[in-house]
Write a protein that binds this DNA or RNA. Structure first.
Lengths: 257, 257
DNA sequence: GGTCGACATCTTGCATGCAAGAAAATTTGA
DNA sequence: TCAAATTTTCTTGCATGCAAGATGTCGACC
C-alpha cells in the first residue's frame, strides 16, 4: 500500500539473473530457482513490495511454472516473500521492527554457539577462524564490500558450525537470510570497523582459551553492537529517504549505473 | 537401510487422516495438506523412515500431485522430511543427538522470551498465563494426555508471543515442531510433574514481578529440566526397543491391530 | 549355480492445460 | 464529465501428461 512501485521493472531486474550454473545438467531446477530468487531478494535487486508474477518469472527463468511455484512457496517459508491467497507473492518489507527483533535472537543464538564451540574447539579450527578473520581484513583493505560481507559471514558461520549443534546451525541459516538482507539494504561499510576487529580478536582469544563464558559474552556483545549499528544505518537511510511526508517523491540516487 | 519397514502400512496409516476441514470450500489445499501431513508426522502416525510415495498420498488425500509435492517441499524445509534427489521423501529420523541439540536452542529461545516478556507484560496477560497453567493442571488431573500437551504448549507459546518479538515466535514455532515430535514419541507423562508445577509457578511469579532476569532464568531451567527428562525417556525407550544386536528381531509390540 | 546384463515398471521432475477468482478496461447511465 | 456496472483479460490454484532416472525382475552367459 505505502510502497507502490511500478510493476514493470521486474523484467529489467530479472535480466540481472545470474546464469543457471552451466554445469548443472538437469534436475535441481527447484533448488536452483530458490537459490537464484533468494539471492535477488537478499541482495535487494528485487525490492520490497515487488510483485512476483509467476508467468513473468517463468519467461525470465526459462522454466515452467511448477518449479517456480515451488520456489515461491519455499521463499514464503523463509519469510522473504509474503503471500496473499489468490494474489501474487510480494517481496516482504524490510521492517525495521523486525530487524530490531532479529538483534535479540541472533545475539542469543551466536552467543550460545560461542559457548558451545569454546568447549570442544580444536587447534585446527581456531586457526581456521583466525584465517577467516584475516581474510575479512584483506577484503576490507581492498575495499571489496561483497568479499568483506562474505568473509565476515564465513567467520560467524564457522563458529556456529563448530558449536556442533545442528539445530543451531539450521536456525542461524534462517536468521542469516534476514540479516544479510538488512546488510545489503544498508549497503554501508560497518562504521565500527576498528571495534569490530578488536571484538573478533576477543572472540578468538576466548575460543583459544576454551573459555566458554567469555566466548559467549564476546560474541553476544559483538553481534549486538554490529547489528545495532546496522539498525542505526537503516534508520538513518530511511529517514533520509523520506525527509517529510510530501508527496513529491523526486528522489534520485538509485544506484543503477 | 537400517530401518526397512514394509511400505504397505502407509495406506493404513493414512486412513487415519483427519478429515479435510469440512468448512473449507476450495483453495487452501496446500496449507491444508501441509497441516495434515505435519500432524501425522509430529504425532508419530507416520513413523520415521516411512517413504512418502507421492501418488499414494494423492490417492489417500484425494487431491492431485501438485499440492502434495508442494506440501512435501514445505515439510522438508521444516526438517520433518528428508529428500534424496529422484527418490521418495522419507520421514526424518528422530535423532537423539538432534533432540539434545534442541534442548540448548529451545532453552535460550524461551529464556530470551521470558526476559523480554517480563519487561512489558500486562496484568491481563499475567492472568492469562495463570489460566493456561491451571488448564494444564486440569487436564493432568483428568488424565488427558493430549489436552495436557496442548495446554502446556499454549502456556509456553503465549509467553513467546508476549515477548513481542516476531522473529522469536517464528523460530520457536519451527523448534516446537521438533519438540512436539519428540514428546509424542516418548508418549509419557512428564516424570517431573510436581517440579514442573513449581517451576511454572516461579515463572508466573517472575513475570508478575516484572523481573526480567528471574523470568529468563526460571524459563531456562524449566525448559532445560523438562527437555532433559524427555531425552532420558527417549533414551530409555530406545534402549528397551533394542536390547541387543541379535538379528532375531522377534520383537512384538507393533501397535498395529 | 551364480553373476551380470537387458528389459519392464515404477517414481519423481517438469511442462502444460483448464477453471475459478481477481484486476482492468470498456461501456452505460446519470 | 464523472461514476458505477459489466465484460474482458489476466493470474493464480489445481489437475494431468510426458519424459528421464531409478528399481526390480527375468533371462542369458560364464
Amino acid at each position: 500500500m505505502t510502497i507502490s512501485d511500478d510493476t514493470t521493472p521486474l523484467a529489467a531486474l530479472l535480466a540481472q539473473l545470474p546464469p543457471p550454473e552451466p554445469g548443472k545438467r538437469k534436475g535441481h531446477l527447484h533448488g536452483n530457482t530458490v537459490a537464484r530468487l533468494r539471492n535477488l531478494i537478499v541482495t535487494g535487486v528485487l525490492a520490497p513490495g515487488t510483485k512476483l508474477n509467476e508467468r513473468e518469472l517463468c519467461d525470465q527463468l526459462a522454466i515452467s511454472r511448477t518449479p517456480v511455484r515451488e520456489a515461491i512457496k519455499t521463499l514464503i517459508q523463509d519469510g522473504l516473500l509474503r503471500a496473499l491467497p489468490n494474489h501474487s507473492a510480494v517481496v516482504s518489507e524490510l521492517d525495521l521492527d523486525e530487524v530490531v527483533a532479529l538483534i535479540e535472537v541472533v545475539t542469543v543464538v551466536e552467543g550460545l554457539a560461542g559457548e558451545l564451540a569454546a568447549k570442544h574447539i580444536s587447534d585446527e579450527a581456531i586457526a581456521e577462524i583466525g584465517m577467516l578473520h584475516y581474510r575479512m581484513l584483506l577484503h576490507h583493505a581492498r575495499d571489496e564490500l561483497p568479499g568483506y560481507f562474505e568473509a565476515n559471514k564465513a567467520f560467524h558461520r564457522r563458529i556456529i558450525e563448530l558449536s556442533g549443534n545442528s539445530i543451531l546451525l539450521w536456525v542461524w541459516e534462517l536468521l542469516a537470510l534476514r540479516v544479510d538482507r538488512a546488510r545489503f539494504s544498508s549497503n554501508l561499510w560497518p562504521t565500527r570497523w576498528r571495534t569490530a576487529i578488536e571484538e573478533h580478536q576477543q572472540i578468538l582469544d576466548a575460543l583459544t582459551a576454551r573459555d566458554s563464558g567469555r566466548a559467549g559474552q564476546a560474541l553476544r556483545s559483538h553481534v549486538r553492537n554490529g547489528l545495532e549499528g546496522l539498525v542505526a544505518s537503516l534508520r538513518a537511510k530511511q529517514a533520509a529517504a523520506q525527509p517529510e511526508t510530501e508527496r513529491g517523491k523526486k528522489q534520485g540516487g538509485a544506484t543503477s549505473r
